[in-house]
């Protein structure tokens, strides 16, 4: 019927051709997309390692043989080590309440949980300065009791908790809502305790989603810059995290040192992406067997 198509073309080919672009267009689009991604993603990634090794591997390793660098690494692990588990427990509690029960104001609660994502990192740090700083609301009381939060480790932990607050919860809420409550109800009716139901029924169902949230939460916790920068006070060896240490080295024109430390964070980012892809793959496979 269609005059454009020669009558000898088999039906299957016709079907494919009407909803596909000519090869020329296809390759032009792929080429443009790859060029854009190459320019904006691959080149910066390559630049970090090129600059880090600009003076050879000896100099690169030398950067890490420094008390301040090691202190920064330690503090980053402390901050992430506190913020990630706490946000994980919160995420599980919030997802359980939201997915397994009906109550008024649920949509509002979900919106409020997402709130920290829409606040600028700088403002996220600032709110704790207003609360706990010397001129802050609780400042005089803290000063009288000799408790330091701002320009000290607790402030860094709080700021990290704020910016990574929604990660686990927003991963688990839709997942547990989609899974419904029937399996847990069955477990309860068969005599399982609440804790047994959670551990034996819910946890195996959500483990990949949980892991996914934890991976993203951890990456952000270790890499946060703006919020932590406001509350840190930049005291070397005491309140510097890895990203802040990168900034200090960079501002001192120690570019190779800055990029060497940055390469550590870049490595973390690449591992995060690899793990994330692996979990997504696992999740897709799991859904494939279920459906």
């Amino acid at each position: 019927m269609n005059p454009v198509l020669p009558p000898s073309v088999p039906h299957r080919d016709v079907h494919r051709r009407v909803t596909a672009e000519p090869p020329f267009v296809r390759w032009l689009l792929i080429g443009t997309a790859l060029l854009f991604l190459g320019l904006f993603l691959v080149v910066p990634l390559a630049a970090v390692f090129a600059e880090a090794f600009a003076k050879g591997i000896g100099f690169y390793l030398h950067t890490f043989n420094d008390a301040n660098t090691l202190a920064a690494i330690k503090l980053t692990f402390i901050a992430a080590g506190i913020a990630v588990p706490l946000n994980c427990i919160f995420g599980l509690a919030a997802a359980w309440a939201i997915a397994k029960f009906d109550f008024r104001g649920k949509t509002m609660l979900i919106t409020l949980i997402d709130l920290p994502f829409s606040v600028s990192p700088v403002v996220s740090g600032m709110i704790y300065v207003l609360l706990f700083g010397a001129q802050g609301l609780l400042g005089p009381w803290l000063l009288a009791h000799d408790i330091r939060i701002i320009f000290a480790v607790p402030g860094i932990v709080l700021a990290t908790m704020f910016v990574t607050f929604p990660f686990v919860a927003r991963e688990l809420i839709p997942l547990m809502q989609a899974q419904g409550r029937t399996e847990e109800e069955a477990a309860r009716v068969l005599g399982a305790s609440g804790w047994q139901t959670f551990r034996r029924v819910t946890l195996p169902n959500i483990k990949w989603g949980l892991l996914y949230g934890v991976i993203l939460c951890n990456a952000r916790a270790m890499g946060e810059f703006g919020a932590v920068s406001v509350v840190s006070g930049h005291i070397r060896g005491q309140t510097n995290t890895i990203p802040l240490h990168v900034e200090i080295l960079y501002n001192e024109y120690n570019f190779v040192g800055a990029f060497a430390v940055a390469s550590l964070l870049t490595f973390l980012a690449v591992v995060t992406l690899a793990l994330k892809t692996w979990v997504e793959h696992k999740n897709a496979a799991l859904r494939g067997t279920d459906g």
Partner: peptide, 19 residues
């Protein structure tokens, strides 16, 4: 390439800035 698209989410902003 699909995995790489998320790099700006995973890479700390300070690292992106200096790179």
């Amino acid at each position: 390439v699909d995995a790489l698209v998320d790099l700006p989410f995973a890479l700390p902003t300070a690292v992106a800035g200096i790179a």
